[in-house]
């Protein structure tokens, strides 16, 4: 058998073996979250490389080594799940670098990081002033997690006391002009509903590249033909506007009428409608 056929068969075989190994070890192996996975990842890769190109090497010895490394990693993961002490030992613990806004020099020395390296890591998180940081941890894989002081954190609706409507994740129900039935089911809709909505927008299914539905049942589409303008869903903002208009109308009637009883009725309903508007505003905006 010529050398190149040998290499091709070995490459394919080892590709399959590596694929299966990482599949079994899971996402953690790919992201190399812990020290152990990092070492196992490098070693498995280099063993595979060695065996694939080294014609004189033994195929079975290489495979065996990969399987052993995979098995040990799997076992370590398994034990780490069950024992916190074991996982601290194999995967390492985070080191606190900044606490209460002060750099802990001893911990820095223990991890052998210079202040320059720490500032680089902070800058990568868009933090240029160490004084802005309340708390920072050096994670086992060498990246830094930082918690800013409350006054330096981005403003959220909660900070300003705004009530926000909760939204579910949008579902992608059309891809490349094909209906995704499972996503459609998740959105609680059927094909009939989809055809009606497409008709409302005035587009055909074949022309839709991407179609998504949000948790209010609004359909937004992207078409193949970028020259066509698709109307944006406006039902909710329009509804808010007509609620406001009606509220103003009722106020007007209450001023215009001379009948005391009707005046009171209009006033009461205008107030009721105002209450309704306040309640619905978070859901109808945007």
């Amino acid at each position: 058998m010529p050398g190149w056929v040998f290499i091709i068969t070995r490459s394919l075989l080892f590709l399959l073996l590596l694929f299966i190994t990482t599949k079994i070890l899971g996402k953690k192996q790919i992201s190399e979250l812990s020290f152990f996975e990092y070492v196992a990842g490098i070693t498995i890769g280099s063993i595979a490389g060695e065996v694939v190109t080294g014609l004189e090497g033994n195929l079975y010895h290489g495979s065996l080594a990969i399987i052993v490394f995979g098995l040990v990693t799997y076992l370590v993961n398994f034990l780490s799940i069950h024992s916190k002490k074991f996982s601290d030992f194999t995967e390492g613990k985070g080191t606190v670098i900044i606490r209460d806004g002060k750099i802990l020099e001893d911990n820095l020395k223990k991890e052998r990081y210079t202040i320059d390296e720490i500032s680089t890591l902070l800058r990568q998180k868009n933090i240029f002033n160490v004084a802005d940081v309340e708390f920072a941890v050096l994670e086992p894989r060498g990246n830094l997690s930082a918690l800013l002081k409350k006054e330096n954190r981005p403003l959220t609706p909660k900070d300003v006391g705004m009530k926000m409507a909760n939204e579910k994740e949008p579902q992608t129900i059309i891809m490349d002009g094909a209906i995704m039935d499972e996503a459609l089911r998740w959105a609680g809709k059927g094909r009939d509903w989809l055809y009606t909505e497409l008709e409302k927008l005035g587009v055909t299914l074949d022309n839709v590249f991407l179609g998504q539905v949000n948790s209010y049942g609004d359909l937004t589409v992207d078409l193949y033909d970028d020259k066509i303008q698709v109307p944006q869903p406006q039902q909710r903002p329009l509804l808010l506007a007509s609620l406001k208009k009606t509220q103003a109308d009722l106020e007007l009637f209450s001023l215009a009428t001379e009948c005391e009883k009707s005046k009171a009725m209009y006033k009461k309903n205008a107030a009721l409608l105002q209450e309704t508007i306040n309640k619905l505003e978070p859901y109808l905006n945007g």
Binding site: A165, N166, E167, K168, A187, G188, S215, Y216, G217, K279, L280, Y283
Partner: peptide
Amino acid sequence: SLDQEAKAA
């Protein structure tokens, strides 16, 4: 609507 809170409102 899918969100229960929005539905109720």
